[in-house]
């Protein structure tokens, strides 16, 4: 059984505003599914419909086997939700909030207390549990929000932009926790505008733009649709022709720019070491060398014709400068 099954889901706010334009998607049990898209693409609207906060104006959606409209109470009992704004009362303490959440989900007092304390421990907030949430950092709030979403042991967890605005350390802490939860069997549906997040966390990625699904697949499948890895090499003056001949032995030459040589590598990173050795043996002085992998942003550009908003702000983990210093000469 699919954990989430969406068919033609639509949300129209007026004749002019169609926030979600009939999307289809399916998330298997135990999967981490990332819903990737820029601000205003329809990610949050979709999540709000799936968690029963908003009624669809068309199509159907089932979560944990229950219809989100006709069986909304059963959906609510089955899911954990951490919404974009980390909706926490700043005047409550972390422990009070956990207990309240336990009560909302019908846990007996003792069990609610026990589970609340265990989850606070799990997300590293035991020491801050009796402080008011208003004194928490952004990362602590997100972790508390995540803990509240888990108090009733949900089978499907919805995370709406769980790391937006967080520093890298807090972001990684959230990712680690999401992975642990998934290892324990929880299905995770997360929205994000961070390519890196989708790439590192998700088993499958759905790209949404203007309320429509632009692409769907594993990160590897999506990236393979837009081409192969290529190597960019900067050679000392006067040696480019000889270096170009060597590179051609390893792959497909690509249009060069800024005096660089570029070659597409069907075997990816596996070809880098042989190329470096060959250039070295031929006496070509390599001034710089960079292996460039296709990114989800390339996928986004391919599918939508534009870059994902904010993508330029991120370091693309795939673009690893393999060599910073000249390796030969």
């Amino acid at each position: 059984m699919a954990a989430i099954e969406v068919r033609g889901l639509e949300r129209r706010y007026s004749d002019e505003v169609l926030a979600v334009a009939g999307i289809d998607l399916e998330v298997s049990e135990g999967e981490i599914y990332a819903f990737l898209g820029p601000n205003g693409a329809g990610k949050t609207t979709t999540v709000r419909m799936l968690v029963t906060l908003l009624q669809p104006t068309g199509g159907t959606a089932r979560v944990a086997g229950f219809d989100v409209v006709r069986e909304a109470p059963s959906v609510r009992r089955s899911i954990g939700v951490a919404l974009q704004e980390a909706a926490l009362d700043p005047l409550m303490t972390g422990r009070e909030l956990m207990r309240l959440q336990g009560t909302l989900h019908g846990l007996p007092s003792d069990e609610g207390r026990r589970r609340g304390d265990a989850l606070l421990e799990r997300v590293g907030l035991s020491l801050a549990a009796d402080r008011r949430v208003g004194t928490y950092s952004g990362g602590m709030r997100r972790r508390l929000d995540l803990a509240t979403a888990l108090v009733h042991d949900p089978t499907v967890l919805f995370l709406d932009e769980p790391t937006t605005g967080l520093d890298p350390v807090s972001r990684i802490a959230i990712w680690d926790e999401v992975r642990r939860l998934n290892d324990d069997g929880t299905t995770v549906f997360l929205t994000t505008q961070y390519l890196e997040e989708a790439d590192h966390l998700a088993d499958r990625v759905g790209i949404i733009d203007n309320g429509k699904m632009a692409a769907e697949g594993t990160p590897g499948e999506l990236k393979s649709q837009v081409g192969i890895a290529h190597l960019e090499v900067v050679i000392a003056a006067g040696e480019s022709a000889k270096a170009g001949e060597i590179l051609e032995r390893f792959g497909v030459p690509m249009p060069a720019r800024d005096g660089r040589l570029m070659v597409g590598l069907p075997r990816g990173a596996a070809d880098v070491a042989p190329i470096v050795r060959a250039l070295d043996e031929a006496g070509c002085a390599v001034e710089a060398l960079e292996l460039v992998q296709p990114t989800l942003d390339d996928v986004f550009v391919e599918k939508t014709g534009r870059h994902l908003e904010g993508a330029a702000d991120q370091q693309h983990p795939e673009q690893q400068p393999a060599v910073e210093e000249p390796v030969s000469g």
């Binding site: 906060l53 899911i79 939700v81 704004e85 980390a86 009362d89 959440q101 909302l104």
Partner: peptide
């Protein structure tokens, strides 16, 4: 204020 910060959404998303 609860509506504005999304706290009411937390309650509406709970099985109550």
């Amino acid at each position: 204020l609860d509506i504005q910060i999304g706290f009411v959404d937390r309650l509406v998303a709970a099985p109550i």
